[in-house]
Each structure stands twice: as structure tokens, then as C-alpha cells.
Amino acid sequence: MIECKDLVKIYRNGDVETQALKGVSFEIEDGEFVAIIGPSGSGKSTLMHIIGALDTPTSGSYILGGQEMSSLDDNELSDIRRTKIGFVFQSFNLLPRTTVLRNVMLPLLYSNTSEKEREQRALESLKYAGMDESKVYNLSNQLSGGQMQRVAIARALINNPSIILADEPTGNLDTKTSHIVMKTFQELNAKGHTIVLITHEEEIANFASRVISIRDGVVESDRKT
């Protein structure tokens, strides 16, 4: 359950103040597949950072799973990201020259999990994300774009997070691969995962069950598909 109430974010760069969010409020229930759509400069990235516990709002409240997030420090935000949020980025952000398995295991670093259990969870996660099992020991830079994004999804899933946050996950992919990746998200949603998708493409947003449209720092529309 995500609750955003009057989120305001102001960036200060010297004397210049930019108000990226001007009071955004909405709720996302568990198990929803929501697309947040808007043109560049609309404030959707800022909103994504706040939802993803990468940044805190200037004012307003953001509650994730019953916990108020707007006043946490760097370490607490790190812990939230590790346990409650799975990220999928536009540019995949895999560790280069590193095996698929190791990439997926990255969020389990410094946790009290044995190496064996980590590997097992990573393998499960990869299977879950639809990754071919024969490729788990390949290096990340030997994969195709679609495969990389699947590895990233598997990495996002490994800690069984409350929400999966996908920031333009199809931005670097061709149409066909984009559709395959979006299908994967739909399957995950069908299995009960909450998914928040950030995009600027109407077509991609339509894979979600609900579309929140952001423009100039405010919610423009909120509709079911």
C-alpha cells in the first residue's frame, strides 16, 4: 500500500528554485499495476525517486507499507530500498564483466544469508523472471538487451519486495523486446506483485491496469485502463 499526500519537491541550484512537484496525492493498493506517465520535465522522475526511497520530499507525506518515509536518513532509506523495493532501470545497470548469477545476488550482499541460499534464491528469481537457465554463468555484457532487462527484473525480485519500481524499463529496447518485457511485468502482477511503471510512452503505459498522468508537477488524470 502506497500513500502519497501533498508531495512537494523543490530543487535548489544556487539562487534558482525549481518546483518539480507541486502537491501530488494518490494511493496505490497492493497488487496493482500502475503506470505513471508524463512528458519529460513533468516531475515523474522526481516522483519515482521519492516512491523508490532514493530521495525524500521537501514537504508532504509518503507512506510505504504503513511506514512514514519522508523523514528517514540515508541508512534507513538504504534498508528500505533493500527490503521493500525492487528497481528496474532504463539502462539495466548490471555490473559489467560479472556473471548473471552474481548480478542477481547483489542485493543480498552484507545480509546474513549463506552463499548457498543466495545462489538458490537467485536461480529461483531468474526462473521467475523468465531467464534461460543456461545463461546464468554468462557475463552480463554478453547478453542481449531483453536478457539484460530480465536479469535486472530477477535482481529486483530477489528480496521479495513490496513494490517493483520500473523506470522506463523499455527505453533502451526495440518494440518486440519491449512487449516481451511488459508481458513479464503483467505475469508478475498476475502473481500478486505490486508494480509501479514510469514511462513517457502511452503504448507502454497501456500494459498497466491504471495510468496516472503527471504534468507540470501535478496529477493531470488518474484512470483505469
Binding site: L54, N93, L106
Partner: peptide, 16 residues
């Protein structure tokens, strides 16, 4: 730096 960003994004604490 990008690797550091990724590590942070997936929730590795700064001290580690």
C-alpha cells in the same frame, strides 16, 4: 561511480 550508485540503489549501506 555508476557501480557505486547501483550498489546504493539496491540498498547497500554507505559504510559497506
Amino acid at each position: 561511480t555508476r557501480e557505486i550508485g547501483l550498489r546504493k540503489a539496491v540498498g547497500v549501506r554507505r559504510i559497506y
